[in-house]
Design a protein around this nucleic acid. Structure first.
Lengths: 290, 290, 290
DNA sequence: ATAGGTTTTGTCAAGCTTTTGTACAT
DNA sequence: ATGTACAAAAGCTTGACAAAACCTAT
């Protein structure tokens, strides 16, 4: 129990919500009920932090603050997941490690049937991919399961993506930079952006820059997103990216390593995991749109 | 419940329909009936959002707004898809209950694209059939409803069954007993057995015992499965079943009521739903085969 | 029922027949009997649209309008589409070239609903891929649509592949050689082999040879298939392939260029398109097994 | 094909209220 | 830290408008 007690400034830093706003939320909607230090400082528990995160997520999605507060207080926001989440997630990991397609699919079925896509993506798929990546970086690479796992996940995500260019929302064109072959993160990004009402056109791994240019010309999307985990070999396309950024709203998604590249080309950098990034893009477009 | 509530501006941004137009649609056609906040702000649910998307799609196709509204209100427009299981399953149920073939097919498309056949069968189709049967017994459902649903599902399942007799796996011959006309369960059983690698020969509803015998002789299958929900009028074929069971591995599928029949003829009884039963048969054969 | 209702202007735009002409055809020949809105606007159904299309086709052929009308009313004019193969295949190609995911999926739906997977693979997908490959070889490369098309097709094929390792048939492990990134052909091969009753484990594009070795050790498959279109950069893995071929039945799939490689390593070469190759492998195994 | 009248439908304006993050004074 | 104040942004309603699309009849 006696869990960590954060003060308002720290909580603000962690959640990205200004201290002023946190006080306002407390006063106006009663979302938080922080303990007080002797001197009267607010002391927030981890639960409070989770609540703020939930609230921030809803607000980010466009739900008005008052409504978001109602949701969070009612426990209606997807904070309190029921069911055997950890169990299903474990089963998935084990099945993938055993090269067992059928069992993997069943585990994914169970997860997706019981939880929102966003939750499955954030709590299962992304952590799994992250763990794979770390093993790879530590040279425990060529983990035999990696190929198999990414094949299975990709197939599944692509099935969810079917027809994701339908509708009337703004359009985004997504592509991996030339040489870049990790498209799973970009698919997750696309799925989440789709959930925000966007239409997605996906060009996939290792897309030549001319292909991207042609697609952009044909489709006149609202934004263009290029995934480029590492800046290696990227110098060739830097001029082309610059041109693209001049005409279109261009985002670069990847590690911090590409920050300078983004700066030089006039593109914007996407930070955080794909789910967060998608929410950020949607929010930015919302802001700009008005 | 406690679903997300959007305000008009956010909805406008998501759907690309101006807030003015949204208000006009509400006033003029009554497409939307948003809840109101205390202060009178419109609060739209996710369902409303889907409705607006559908409406926008129709209008984009050239359907006049007034007509599009009629369509959407009648539930006739293809309600854009989300990747969520419960939603798609609900949509299927509703479409079947409304005698709406096109919508049923779309819902099935969405489900089968995103989830494995096994999951769709166990979590959606079988429960639906079961519920329909119960409603029928309580007099709440009409024969017409049952016919329509089984017609739609049968067509779809048989489409999935195409080519299920190809390959090199063990062969199963499936038939409904004479007089028995419910073949959906048996088709589900066949599909699941197919997923386990078997080859299926399906003789369908109301198969005369001689037909079955002839097929068995011609094909020399590994197993024979006869569906016989009730033991009525089965006395005629009991001797023939006994002969069959003497030469072949014979399963009887149906309710508990047929257990004595199975005992007398030397056939084995299949328990549980069709999906479980198929898994059991596949496992038994694996055990025996090795 | 409650089908889409178009107004005269939209119908004119779609059919290329002026609104005036449409009214004239109605008045003079009674070809159309549009419903009316409250205000008296004509509302055309989809059936009406088809009728107008038929009429326009006849008139375009030089048939006088009055005659054309008689024909159409008698249902005699060829009513546009039957479930025709070439049409659906064309529609698919066009949709892919337009970067239109939703339309592509519909076209694939139509094809797969009406024809067997094998037919669609051989008559549509493989020719399309071949054409892409040729354009690429002729230096018309970076055909902009290539990435998009292979993304869409891959997603669809992966959905068909879901759970393809279930059952009791012989097992095949499939992988693309290191550096090889074209996996579509290998997926087609796997699907066809699955149709022959095999269980498939798929490791995907650009698989390190150690990964392959690990998977083979874990699974002890009947056969191993490595796709390697070109022999470049293959010298590194030649020894490893040789070792693999010593212990396992190893196939190499690719162009004729890899024949010498196959010879040196002791692997067998797969000839012909993926569908043929799968049939050949299945037949060989049947022969050897008996 | 034109003319003259009607309907549809998205948009705008005016005047007023609510929401909500931030700023300021205590 | 608190409480009040503020201002920008976003809503609401009513009413009106105008371009585009339709209608019939000549």
């Amino acid at each position: 129990m006696a869990s960590r007690q954060l003060r308002i400034g720290e909580l603000a830093r962690r959640t990205g919500i200004s201290a002023d706003a946190l006080r306002a939320w407390e006063r106006r909607y009663g979302v938080l009920r922080p303990a007080r230090s002797e001197a009267g400082y607010r002391l927030y528990s981890e639960e409070d932090e989770a609540r703020v995160q939930a609230m921030a997520r809803e607000v980010g999605r466009g739900v008005p603050a008052a409504e978001a507060a109602r949701l969070v207080l009612a426990g209606g926001a997807d904070s309190g997941e029921r069911g055997d989440f950890a169990g299903a997630a474990d089963e998935l990991r084990r099945a993938l490690d055993d090269f067992d397609d059928a069992r993997s699919q069943s585990a994914l079925d169970a997860l997706l049937a019981a939880f929102s896509f966003e939750t499955v993506a954030r709590k299962v798929i992304l952590p799994y991919l992250r763990a794979l990546g770390e093993r790879w970086e530590r040279g425990e690479a060529s983990v035999a399961q990696e190929h198999f796992a990414s094949f299975v996940l990709r197939g599944r995500l692509l099935a969810l993506a079917r027809g994701w260019d339908r509708g009337a929302g703004p359009r985004a064109v997504l592509a991996c930079a030339p040489g870049e072959r990790h498209e799973l993160g970009l698919i997750l990004f696309g799925l989440e952006l789709r959930a925000h009402g966007w239409r997605i056109t996906f060009l996939g791994a290792d897309t030549p820059i001319e292909t991207l240019a042609a697609a952009v010309e044909a489709l006149t999307p609202e934004i263009v997103v290029v995934a480029a985990l590492a800046p290696d070999h990227m110098s060739d396309i830097e001029p082309a990216l610059g041109e693209l950024a001049a005409d279109e709203k261009l985002y670069l998604a990847g590690t911090d390593a590409i920050e300078p590249l983004a700066g030089r080309t006039g593109a914007e950098l996407l930070r955080g995991d794909p789910i967060e990034a998608a929410a950020a893009v949607a929010a930015a477009a919302r802001g700009a749109g008005s």
